[in-house]
Computed example of a mutant assay.
Amino acid sequence: MKLSDGVEQAIHSITMLAGLSDEGVLSAAALAEFHGVSASYLLKHLQALSSAGILDAVPGPKGGYRLARSPGRITLLDIVLAVEGSGPAFRCKEIRRRGPNPLPARMFTTPCSINAAMLRAENAYRAELRRVSIADILSDLETFDDGTIAARSCLFFEAHERISGRKA
């Protein structure tokens, strides 16, 4: 399965936003600058995350994005579904019914075993993504960061964090 670059950008942006103060926001342009990615491409995904209730979009000149819920209540699955959509990765088109010599109707009384196997695999994949929260990612990060990553983020926040009022 191949996920879009937007998934990686969204996960990194959300982990970044988790470090903001309660009143802080970061603009899409600042997040894009920090990660060295296209602002317009990232903005599309930030809007999807906002529509999914993962991020709050704060309008105005001091506006930007912040988490809509705590890092412990945002899973990797939440992010993937917001960016990629909720449809299954594998979509069975029942090609067994096509071609010059399709199978007879009696062969379709049970689900296609290929489709069933792919759905089991997707369910396992989604279960694992559902198990991992942004809080888990941040905890893992703390175990190996010698202070370099934290210092980089702090410097960036000092230059780019906007104070926009308290979260509701």
Rank of each mutant, 00 (worst) to 15 (best):
Phe156His: 02
Ala150Cys: 06
Arg126Thr: 06
Ser153Val: 14
Leu138Thr: 00
Leu103Met: 09
Glu142Trp: 04
Ala105Arg: 08
Glu142Asn: 08
Arg91Thr: 14
Thr143Glu: 08
Tyr125Glu: 10
Glu122Leu: 00
Asp140Phe: 10
Ile114Phe: 09
Arg152Gly: 12
Ala121Tyr: 10
Cys154Glu: 13
Arg162Phe: 02
Met118Leu: 06
Met107Pro: 08
Ala89Lys: 13
Glu128Tyr: 06
Pro88Thr: 12
Phe108Pro: 05
Arg98Lys: 13
Glu94Gly: 15
Ser113Arg: 11
Thr148Tyr: 11
Phe156Met: 04
Glu94Phe: 15
Pro111Cys: 02
Asn115Gly: 13
Ile134Phe: 01
Ile149Arg: 11
Ile137Gln: 03
Asn123Glu: 14
Ala124Lys: 09
Arg98Tyr: 13
Leu103His: 07
Arg152Asn: 11
Met107Arg: 11
Asp145Pro: 00
Ala151Leu: 08
Leu138Phe: 00
Asp136Thr: 04
Ile114His: 07
Ala117Cys: 05
Phe156Thr: 03
Asp146Met: 03
Asn101Val: 15
Thr109Phe: 10
Asp136Ile: 02
Arg97Phe: 06
Ala159Asp: 12
Thr143Ser: 07
Arg120Leu: 06
Phe108Ile: 07
Ile149Met: 13
Arg120Ser: 05
Phe108Lys: 08
Arg152Met: 13
Glu122Val: 01
Met107Gly: 08
Thr109Trp: 12
Ala124Ser: 08
Cys154Gln: 13
Asp145Asn: 00
Arg97Ser: 07
Thr148Glu: 13
Ala116Met: 11
Thr143Arg: 07
Pro88Arg: 12
Leu155Gln: 13
Ile149Cys: 10
Ala121Asn: 10
Ala116Gly: 09
Ser133Thr: 02
Asp145Phe: 00
Asn115Ser: 15
Arg131Lys: 06
Asn123Arg: 14
Ala117Lys: 09
Ala159Glu: 12
Gly99Leu: 07
Arg120Tyr: 05
Glu94Met: 15
Arg162Ile: 04
Asp146Gln: 04
Ala135Gly: 02
Arg106Thr: 15
Pro102Leu: 03
Asp140Tyr: 10
Gly99Thr: 06
Ala159Ser: 11
Pro111Phe: 03
Asp140Trp: 11
Ala121Gly: 11
Leu103Tyr: 05
Gly147Gln: 01
Asp145Met: 00
Val132Asn: 03
Gly147Lys: 00
Ala151Phe: 06
